[in-house]
Amino acid sequence: MTIASTTQQICFLVLSATLVFGSLGVVLLPNIVYSAFLLGGVFLSVAGLYLMLNASFVAAAQVLVYVGAVNVLILFAIMLVNKQETLAAIPGLLLRRILSGAVCAGLFLLLVRVAFTTDWALPGPTPIGDEATIRIGEHLFSDYLLPFELASVLLLMAMIGAIVLARRDVFSSDVITGEPVDQGLIEKSRTPLLLDTNDQKRPMLENTP
């Protein structure tokens, strides 16, 4: 066993430990802010795994997009919606958690069994290593051109839609008839199902830009 391979094994073990405990922390910790920071740790250790798989470009993309954008976005969301609320207790919550835990454990065993019983086409061709970035570019402009262009439409729509949904200023009158409007469904008559009426009756947010 050479030093290089030992180093790799140690790196892999450390990264997997971070990954496993980090992800458990994300779903189990009571404080959501800690969860969000642990999620950043999980993303970083996944990027580390990509580096071990000789994929430096994807690792960089992982750090930039997941840690730099998604995780920060999630932290912002937590700050925006961080009203202290005491969650009402639900009967049978523990039982539900244990049952779903058992289901997930079963799923895990199934996935592991699949990973070990399948004869993957090993060993594959030699990895190209650092030329991967060039190859990715070639793929994006040849056989993956169509999804690449469609992804641009997807991102444009996600951006526009997110702005439309998240901004506060709204019209208060119908453009054509000038009647007052409220950006709600036209069908108003389901009030019996609205449980928290005091939430609904609050004064609506003002037209602040």
């Binding site: 469609l150 949904l165 469904l185």
Partner: peptide, 19 residues
């Protein structure tokens, strides 16, 4: 693309809790 646009459209009536 279909799904993300559909999510946005279902939530388009943003002042309505149901939407």
């Amino acid at each position: 693309t279909l799904s993300v646009s559909s999510y946005l459209l279902s939530g388009y009536m943003k002042r309505d809790a149901r939407s």
